[in-house]
Design a protein around this nucleic acid. Structure first.
Length: 482
RNA sequence: GGCGCUAUCGUCUAGAGGCCUAGGACACCACCCUUUCAAGGUGGACACACGGGUUCGAAUCCCGUUAGCGUCACCA
């Protein structure tokens, strides 16, 4: 039997990295086993779901390299893959539960429930539905109907029992049903609630394994009750530890650390993000000798559910940075230039047309910073002095390096620059010649030139940047200081 | 608060009772390389939350404590 796993986001915003983290495990597992990975939209929250988000989610998922075998966009044998298109199905299953007596019509108003809630709160007890409508007679129901009251469908939770399952990553977990109140499966408007819709969907889509975030552990007993009442086979269920911020809290949307899209904009490479997240809560066998640099293909070949860890993990940005830098350095210059281009254009330093018109030069420029940047978004600030002439001067740099003493040296170099053959070795030879003649140390010669032509004290190799900035512009920039 | 989950270096983790004097990676520190900054190389510091058991022997098994997190919605 092949496995069928799924990812089921809500189209209420851009896709979250936490969502992708568990989706990644599901996807790798499906690919490893030759099973199916299904995409389904859970859009029963009419307030927050917006169809526009669906396209945004597809885009980010594709950017990451994820693909799905069935989904709202491509269809499949278990269509539709959007919950709002499956309402008839939920109603049918809900009716079965009503007929079998597992659920009952509840006519309680919001106000009545709020009062109950306060009552429990006052006694410092966890709120549970009091069961006012649990045993209504047909006459009482008719009376409520006559009043024009709407009803929801509530599950009649059995008392004094245990429900449990064998978690794929955590082992046996049990809950007393007494800790669960009679929950609602159908709203008064006929739209199902999450816990009911997922069960119907996972069962009818024949999902074999559900691997989801640990936040769902407490939903599991509720869903188990529904599976049992419906007489459906329960899939294998497992819960993966969450990814958290440094403070072990939630990844913040506001700080731009939650959405996949944020990382994309910050110049992270999808393969780095995927590789990094794959190692949060999982290690391949033989992890003791430290191979953490795995391509997606390698991950697909090695993923093993039994090696998923239980504890939550901190999304450690410094490690992501390191990994992203590694991936950047592994790109060819051509690839790196293509990846960096949109960021450079967005910074306003050049236009795409201009860069492409001078493509070899542009490539040579970005090549100089390829092993110095951690993200693509850092490229512009490292290469601005190649692309513009009005340079900002780093604080204190001019006073420290562009002194009176350096002027004679500058004048000699400028003269040399006028006639030197324009290649890096010749430029280096000429400048070093003047350094020796005047017996100057690098910090009295190379460093001042660097400051004069870049406006700062740190840059790629001096002779390479002189070559790339060009004869005229280098001379002009140096001439300002002598 | 009830219920539930979790607990090895700062971080991600290896570890399935003796192989552990606890291994690797990121970060950190030092040194090397070097025109600066990176990259690279070498080395270093750093952990089994606590308390009880079980056992000849426990990071590994059991119990408790503590801490963190999740959940108790006509959200998902």
């Amino acid at each position: 039997m092949t496995i069928r796993v799924r990812m089921a986001p809500s189209p209420t915003g851009p896709i979250h990295v936490g969502n992708v983290h568990t989706a990644l495990f599901n996807w790798l597992w499906a690919r490893r086993e030759g099973g199916q990975f299904i995409l389904r939209f859970e859009d029963t929250d009419q307030e927050r779901s917006k169809p526009e988000w669906e396209q945004v989610i597809y885009d980010d998922l594709k950017w990451l390299g994820l693909d799905w075998d069935e989904g709202p966009d491509i269809g499949g044998p278990y269509a539709p893959y959007r919950q709002m298109a499956r309402l008839d199905m939920y109603r049918e299953y809900a009716n079965r539960l009503l007929e079998s007596g597992h659920v009952y019509k509840c006519y309680c108003t919001k106000e009545e429930e709020d009062e109950d809630r306060k009552e429990f709160q006052a006694q410092n007890k966890p709120y549970q539905y009091k069961g006012r409508c649990r045993n209504l007679t047909p006459e009482q129901q008719a009376a409520f109907e006559a009043e024009g009251r709407q009803h929801v469908l509530r599950f009649n939770v059995p008392r004094g029992r245990m429900v449990g399952f064998n978690d794929l990553v955590r082992g046996p977990i049990e809950f007393p049903t007494d800790s669960i109140g009679d929950f609602i499966i159908m709203r008064s408007n006929g739209i199902p609630l999450y816990n009911f819709a997922v069960v119907v969907d996972d069962a009818t889509m024949e999902i074999t394994h559900i691997l989801r975030g640990e936040g769902h552990i407490s939903n599991t007993p509720v869903q188990l009750l529904i599976y049992a009442a419906l007489g459906l086979q329960v899939p294998n269920i497992g819960h993966v530890g969450h990814m958290t911020n440094e403070e072990r809290g939630k990844l913040s949307k506001r700080k731009g650390e939650a959405a996949v899209h944020d990382y994309r904009e910050q110049g992270y490479l999808p393969e780095a993000l995927m590789n990094f997240m794959a190692f949060l809560g999982w290690t391949p066998p033989g992890g003791e000798n430290g191979e953490e640099f795995l391509t997606v293909e390698e991950l697909k070949a090695k993923f093993d559910i039994t090696r998923v860890t239980k504890a939550p993990s901190i999304f450690d940005k410094p490690k992501l940075n390191w990994m992203n830098g590694m991936y950047i350095r592994r790109k060819t210059t051509e690839e790196f230039a293509e990846l960096a281009l949109p960021f450079v254009v967005a910074s306003g330093l050049t236009t795409e047309e201009e860069a492409r018109a001078n493509w070899d030069w542009f490539k040579a420029v970005v090549k100089e910073v390829q092993e110095r940047v951690v993200t693509l978004a850092e490229v512009p600030q490292h290469i601005d002095f190649f692309l513009k002439d009005d340079l900002a001067m780093e604080d204190g740099a001019a006073g420290k390096f562009l002194t009176e003493a350096v002027k004679p040296f500058f004048r000699q170099v400028i003269e040399g620059l006028k006639t030197v053959e324009w290649d890096v070795p010749a430029i280096e030879k000429m400048i070093r010649g003047h350094m020796e003649a005047l017996q100057l140390k690098p910090k009295e010669s190379i460093q001042p030139i660097r400051v004069a032509i870049t406006g700062r004290t740190a840059s790629p190799g001096l002779f390479e940047i002189v070559y790339l900035i060009g004869r005229e512009r280098t001379i002009r920039r140096m001439a300002k200081y002598c």
